[in-house]
């Protein structure tokens, strides 16, 4: 709804704070999501996401949400789907070239960004939307990607180690492992990272 969407932009700071506390929770839950299967979660989570963000931001479910970088003004509501800023056709009254009754989504975006702490992110160059992801949950994607980033950092450490100890790597590869480890191979490390995993990891042990 147009009025609610404009309200969200006016309260961009609040929604930023809300999201910033919501995101770590999703990342934290990644191990659980993985054990439940992202595939199984996709449809129900996407439905909730569609309802919530549809109401607040007129979300179009592009699946690659960038609201935090666009002042809480959804760029998919721009008739040209511009992801990086306004076009050259904005009317003198600040309204849209294509939809004269609508205020330019990107003028709103810049205003919203000015209210946000991380408003500078609006200067980040965004890639084109991957249309094959339309309709999928952005929340789950964030959880997956952020968790993956953490894992990648860990992988990078292992690569550095392998390079620094290249002789050991050649002679005793298990001492300097590089191949991707299955999650079960390092229960302690996962346990250190999230207490919820301890519960899930200990439960089957208790049964044994």
């Amino acid at each position: 709804m147009y009025a609610v969407r404009r309200y969200a932009v006016r309260h961009a700071r609040f929604f930023e704070r809300l999201y910033n506390s919501f995101e770590p929770v999703m990342v934290f839950l990644d191990p659980i999501f993985r054990s439940m299967g992202y595939n199984r979660l996709e449809r129900p989570v996407a439905a909730v996401e569609r309802a919530v963000k549809g109401l607040l931001f007129d979300c179009q479910m592009c699946g690659q949400c960038v609201l935090s970088s666009t002042g809480m003004s959804c760029p998919m509501n721009c008739p040209k789907n511009l992801r990086n800023g306004p076009c050259g056709g904005v009317r003198q009254n600040g309204h849209c070239e294509v939809k004269p009754l609508m205020k330019c989504v990107w003028i709103d975006a810049w205003e919203g960004a000015a209210r946000m702490k991380g408003g500078d992110k609006i200067q980040t160059v965004q890639p084109p939307v991957d249309r094959s992801l339309e309709g999928s949950s952005s929340w789950l994607r964030v959880a997956r990607e952020m968790a993956e980033q953490k894992r990648a950092t860990r992988e990078a450490e292992r690569h550095a180690l392998a390079e620094a100890f290249s002789e050991a790597r050649a002679e005793e590869p298990a001492a300097v492992p590089l191949a991707r480890e299955p999650d079960a191979a390092r229960p302690h490390r996962e346990a250190n990272e999230s207490t919820t995993v301890i519960e899930t990891a200990e439960a089957p042990q208790g049964k044994v």
């Binding site: 008739p79 040209k80 789907n81 992801r83 800023g85 076009c87 070239e97 160059v125 084109p128 939307v129």
Partner: peptide, 24 residues
């Protein structure tokens, strides 16, 4: 360029693509 909307042109029924924007 981003490009003008199809609505202002001589064939307003065309499908606007906008897969990229000028910056991407």
């Amino acid at each position: 360029l981003t490009g003008d909307g199809v609505g202002v042109g001589d064939q307003p029924g065309a499908k606007p693509v906008f897969d990229f924007d000028a910056i991407s």
